[in-house]
Amino acid sequence: MYASPIPMHIPDGFLSVVVSIVLWIVSITAIVIALRQTNKQLGEKQLPLMGVLAAAIFAGQMLNFSVTGGTSGHLMGAAIATILLGPWQAMLVMTSVVSIQALLFQDGGLLVLGANIFNMGVVGVAVAYFVYRAFQQFSKGARWGILTGGFAAAWLSIFIASLGVALQLAISGTSPANIAIPAMGGIHALIGIGEGLITVGALSFLLVARPDLLGTGDSRGKTSIGVWVGGLVITLALAIISPLASTHPDGLEWVAEQKGFLDTAREPLFNIIPDYVFPGISNQALATIVAGVVGSLIVLGVTLGIAYSRRRATKANQ
């Protein structure tokens, strides 16, 4: 039995059909562009490279280190894949990993696979690329730039992706925005530290063993402006929308209105933003704090539950 340790794979039933389809379209567009770019950039070697590296990322997600009291740090791998392969190939690698997890191990749903690819493959990679490139440019490729950039890229890719998950759940009416966003964001801010530390460890190992991979690899080739800007925009958008949506109960509805699908949202079939999911308008500050605490406890429970079931699964296998 296998279950990915990162509580970011949304199962079926948790996203509304509209959100699922919209994110499928976005992901498919990104994948098509990535396929074109990959075909252009590299020769025939790309296929075995991406296939085997995807397998390694999948297996690498099993690596863990104990933090405290049964919790452990893990790797998602979007950042390290981006640093090693460049954004387009990393997107395809993460897409393969997430697809296999959904298709074979039911880790994440099938109808919502587009959303999971979007969160881990597109957002995770674009954000990691934007941050890492920014550090590279700033440090002129120095060692400290690679390491701090790697940490920042890994942490931010996890954190921003989790905000994306929370927003999608909130828009689908599955989890109230003012609970989902602080809870997902909070717990992934911690998980991201583990991701960042492992990424730094891996990078410093590679710097010693194969510096050419980090120095002359695709990641130092010409910048893919599109992905860089995309990563910047995604980071800014989610970083601005999330606190808005979680502190101002109308925040999400405002966004929805701007996008012009509020009318669709009101239809009973889709019911994107049921009003009752936004509690605490009167004593908003208190509600937010209570919600944050409750939410964090819940997600902590989720993480512990996953850790526990994984430990049991490992024991059962031995």
């Binding site: 075995p48 490279l49 296939g51 085997v52 590296l53 397998a55 390694a56 297996a59 690498g60 690596l63 863990n64 280190f65 104990s66 933090v67 405290t68 740090g73 790797l75 390290i80 090693l84 583990g194 530390l197 492992i198 990424t199 730094v200 460890g201 891996a202 990078l203 410093s204 190992f205 590679l206 063993a209 194969r210 991979l213």
Partner: peptide, 26 residues
């Protein structure tokens, strides 16, 4: 914890390195 994380990171780096060599052979 940081030390343990770095050890794990080294393992991840080793794994990636082996997979790159492996893909070459493939």
């Amino acid at each position: 914890v940081v030390w343990r994380a770095r050890v794990t990171g080294g393992m991840a780096g080793g794994l990636l390195l082996r997979s790159l060599d492996h893909s070459d052979r493939v």
